[in-house]
Write a protein that binds this DNA or RNA. Structure first.
Lengths: 335, 335
DNA sequence: TCGATTTGAGAAACCGGTTTCTCAAATGGA
DNA sequence: TCCATTTGAGAAACCGGTTTCTCAAATCGA
């Protein structure tokens, strides 16, 4: 416990001297490797503890050729997806003594290149690439790096490891929830059709409805990812005949717009119409009146898995390539 | 350009050999230090470029005792404040070749300790502490570390360097904007009174109103940081006499609630009442109908400054201690 | 009891750079 | 022309660890 405020850091040399052994023996004792008697080993460990010895990670990395740090490259400026992911990665890796360099590269290829080079110079053991769109790659090529790369929430090469939420399963759960509420006239109000996830989710809607024999094809309205579009969609739907009794929205902001618009029209949620969102962006979903039932992509868990997958690659273990789809969870609130 | 796909990394030894000099000379040439003839220097640099030499940052750090990496400790799980800050720090430091380790520690002191130790083992040059509340410290003591620490958006020790937005100036600008719109019956709807910033901003309101001789004291309603509170506040205000014609809100979510509630009551914004928010959380502010005029805390710039201040400390330069208040900007939209 | 094997520990090389110190050659001044 | 100074470059030590190799002492088997 002592350790004292000895200005300078305690090195393994100090420990060796205090324990009257060579640095070689000290190193072996502390790492539980090599031939050292139990007695000596314990003594060295005790001395190290007393001196408050903490090995210099840089020196260790130099010989071990493992820096115990990884890089996280992100595209996402708001941090809405990145921070939960980051938290998961960090949580999964801290047990391995691994720290995470975060680089916000925006959409700037030059900046991305600079950051990637900086990471490689710092000898990161691997890189996790993440973005805000699953169907778009980052503005930098990571395929010929000397370190393994894992892709999360962004497009990766087909022979790489890519982790994404299972949009289809999530959307299916949302629609089945609406069906379970007795809703039959279900509409999907979603984002721009340029997004792959939009199609995935629409497809899942159709499948879920078909399974329940509620409809042969889901009615889908494409728009933008905004609250404003939620309002517009309700206006369009309620100006026609055949008004829906269940609405599944492409994200929580659209759902928020939909719920607000319905309330303004005097339509009761969930009395007359049930609404389900997507993302479980708590700050939106919980503040909606009534609080929004929505799909959570379990980004933290996804981050954890991405981190662990990267570690396996770093350790040379086999990892199944391709796209891993991780399950989403339905968060049932009052809408 | 060649460099080839030579599997292994190019070391300074390779460069030295190719240029027919010693590693000592190579190092001096590449770093523009020591005694080397211009001719030799150029040749070595050219060879290094041709071979695609990139110095191993770990090895360099070991001798230089500078790792060119810093740690960012954060409390904020949503990342709403952290990511803009992070982007600013990163932007300010990448020119210095410095990378940032991000650690999300939540409110867990043990986790915080583990992360701090991990950073120190990795020989970070310094640490930036950030949180979601300016009047609360992180759950870990950073005062006796061997590396300099800068605090941003979180409470630091009085002899430390702390950067925060100038809430008073920002709030003053907001109120003066309302006054300039011809508003005189101004109310401040804000968060819980346990927050220091709440008082700072309230005080600034009073001052601004006093300067304009519009009132001797600002009317302030304390509540929570939610949209819901915005609704409640409007209900309370409109059920009494003396309805306001200008509302300055403690954050954009409250403002959002206020604007929605006013619209539901048929009160025109900005026709009858002007509303100003705080935070410029674009995803809320831009989606409000009408788009919200609000105060931006310039977090990215704050991050940049924090990073640069830390660098100065690392380089042993003098840095003024105490609380630095950085200016906020009023973002004028339609409310 | 004696040679063969195992054990414990240290010397030294190494990782990939930086830096100090040394020294021969080139230059300068008288 | 001769000595003092400057210049350019390399040898070697170093940063703080890890790892291989060596070797004397202890243990083992016959």
């Amino acid at each position: 416990m002592s350790s004292a405020v000895s200005g300078e850091r305690v090195t393994i040399y100090d420990v060796a001297q205090a324990a009257r052994v060579s640095t070689a023996t000290a190193s072996k004792a502390l790492n539980d490797t090599g031939r050292v008697s139990l007695e000596t080993r314990d003594r060295i460990k005790r001395v190290a503890r007393e001196l408050g010895f903490r090995p210099n990670s840089l020196a260790r990395s130099l010989t071990r050729k493992r820096s115990f740090s990884v890089g996280l490259l992100t595209n996402d400026t708001y941090g809405r997806f990145t921070l939960p992911l980051m938290a998961g990665i960090s949580e999964g890796l801290i047990d391995h003594g691994v720290s995470v360099f975060l680089c916000a590269i925006g959409d700037n290829p030059d900046l991305a290149r600079i950051h990637v080079d900086a990471m490689l110079d710092k000898q990161v053991d691997g890189i996790i690439a993440t973005g805000k769109r699953i169907d778009r790659p980052l503005p930098v090529d990571l395929t010929h790096l000397s370190v393994p790369v894992v892709y999360a929430l962004t497009a990766g090469p087909s022979n790489g490891v890519t982790l994404v939420p299972d949009d289809r399963q999530g959307a299916g759960a949302a629609v089945r929830h609406l069906l379970a509420q007795g809703r039959r006239r279900i509409v999907h109000v979603t984002g721009p059709c340029e997004f792959d996830v939009v199609h995935e989710r629409a497809l899942a809607c159709t499948q879920a409805l078909a399974e329940a024999e509620a409809a042969t094809e889901a009615k889908v309205l494409f728009g933008s990812w905004s609250e404003h579009w939620g309002h517009q969609a309700v206006e369009a739907l309620w100006s026609g005949a055949d008004k829906p009794d269940g609405i599944f929205c492409g994200n929580d902001q659209i759902a928020r717009g939909v719920v607000d618009a319905l309330r303004e029209r005097g339509v009761s949620v969930p009395g007359d119409v049930s609404v389900v969102g997507f993302d479980n962006w708590e700050i939106v979903a919980k503040e909606t009146r009534p609080p929004l039932t929505t799909v959570d992509m379990n980004l933290k868990e996804l981050g954890r898995q991405a981190g662990l997958a990267l570690m396996r690659l770093v350790n040379g273990e086999a990892v199944e390539t391709g796209v891993w789809k991780l399950p989403c969870s339905l968060i049932v609130r009052s809408s």
